[in-house]
Amino acid sequence: MQMKPLGRIGISVSDMCLGTMTFGTQTSQAEAHRQMDMALDAGINFVDAAEMYPVNPVSKETVGLTEEILGNWNAANAARRGDYVLATKHSGEGFMHVRDGAPISDETIAEAVEGSLRRLKTDCIDLYQFHWPNRGSYMFRQNWGYDPSGGDRAAVIADMQACLEALQAQVDKGNIRAFGLSNESAWGTAQWLRLSEETGTPRVASIQNEYSLMCRLFDTDLAELCVYEDVGLLAFSPLAAGFLSGKYQGGAVPDGSRMSLVPGMGGRNSDRVLEAVAAYLDVANRHGLDPVHMALAWCRTRPFMGSVIFGATTEVQLAHILNGLDLELSQEVMDDIDAAHKAFPMPF
């Protein structure tokens, strides 16, 4: 397990992070608590949540349940709370199950932070992230028709500055330690960085965007910015929502899988995706590698990677992932992965 600095704030995190978005729907509280124990025992010191979790599906009735489950673990394991870095997120504009879809603002931040603290049963959130920007995002397959031209730059900048000042108030209270972004762009990240430097408010420590062998938008715009500015990527969906395990090949839909609950897989499901997955499965097979282990190990090689956020619905899945933590890919494997990427550059 490698440890990586989280931005420039003096916090180090394991380069693998336990994602919790299924805690409360697909994953029961008892199993979620066992997963926490397993992950920490394996040397993982980073856990990621969000106030809107769990998902698969998202519903008004379950919003906040993931944080509550983690909070119950914290309460039962008070001596271990200091053993890991806890991250969660403020829901963005348009999510009607929280604050009637209000945008992230200086008026919502205090309320959202306090709510997460109560549910998580902790005194401080180590990394507090904005789930998506108010102005919209090209993430979640919106890149195919994304148009940023309708925004008001002055209003966007003013909103960012007000949010940073509100975050500083939370830091001063001891409620949060660090600030991160999610589903952001290069321009947006650059503006947050510039404003924090000008005002002395919290500096962006990380950015949580989708990244995997199947989704590599980060390579083209954010990679250079994040390397030079010490903003680590927290990669979500590194297994491409489970596609890279191979379990959906040939039209298979295992019972209890994400596809059985969300058939469209967030816009990922198509014949061209299965062809791309087949290319990566072939690489793994030719080199005698488990495809899950290969996909995660590849993510960990990327120069801008802060931590790879993986999810496991079951303890069996988590144990399987943990068994591959020591895998290092040869140059031959890396070359074959590059060839597959060139053949299938944007399957989503």
Rank of each mutant, 00 (worst) to 15 (best):
M1C: 02
M3C: 07
M3K: 14
P5W: 01
L6R: 07
R8T: 01
R8E: 02
I9P: 04
G10R: 05
V13D: 10
L18M: 15
M21R: 12
T27D: 04
A30S: 12
D41W: 03
I44Q: 03
D48P: 08
D48E: 13
A50H: 04
E51G: 00
P54G: 02
N56C: 09
V58D: 00
E61Y: 06
E61P: 09
E61Q: 12
T66N: 02
N72Q: 12
A76S: 11
N77L: 00
A78W: 00
Y84R: 12
V85P: 11
H90D: 00
S91C: 14
E93K: 14
G94V: 11
G94I: 07
F95C: 01
M96C: 06
M96V: 15
D100W: 01
A102P: 14
P103C: 05
S105V: 03
D106S: 14
E107S: 14
E111F: 13
R118S: 10
K121F: 00
Q129R: 13
W132E: 04
G136K: 04
M139L: 03
R141M: 06
N143G: 00
W144G: 06
Y146Q: 03
Y146P: 01
G150H: 07
G150A: 04
G151R: 08
R153D: 08
I157H: 08
A158Q: 05
M160Q: 13
L167C: 10
Q168Y: 11
D172Q: 09
K173C: 02
N183S: 12
S185N: 12
S185M: 15
A186C: 07
T189C: 14
E198Q: 15
T199W: 13
T201G: 00
T201W: 05
V204S: 05
A205K: 07
I207A: 06
N209V: 14
N209Q: 09
L213Q: 05
L213S: 06
L213D: 03
R216V: 12
L217S: 08
L217H: 11
T220S: 11
L222V: 10
A223N: 06
E229S: 12
G232D: 05
P238W: 05
A240D: 04
L244H: 00
S245N: 04
S245R: 03
G246H: 08
M259W: 03
L261F: 08
V262H: 04
V262F: 03
R272A: 14
V273M: 15
L274K: 09
A276Q: 01
V277F: 08
A278H: 09
D282G: 02
D282F: 08
D282L: 06
L289I: 13
M294Q: 00
A295I: 09
T301F: 09
T301Y: 07
T301A: 01
F304R: 07
M305H: 11
M305I: 15
G306F: 05
I309D: 03
L322E: 08
E328N: 09
L329Y: 09
E332W: 01
E332S: 11
V333P: 04
H341K: 13
A343D: 10
F344W: 15
P345E: 06
P347F: 15
F348G: 07
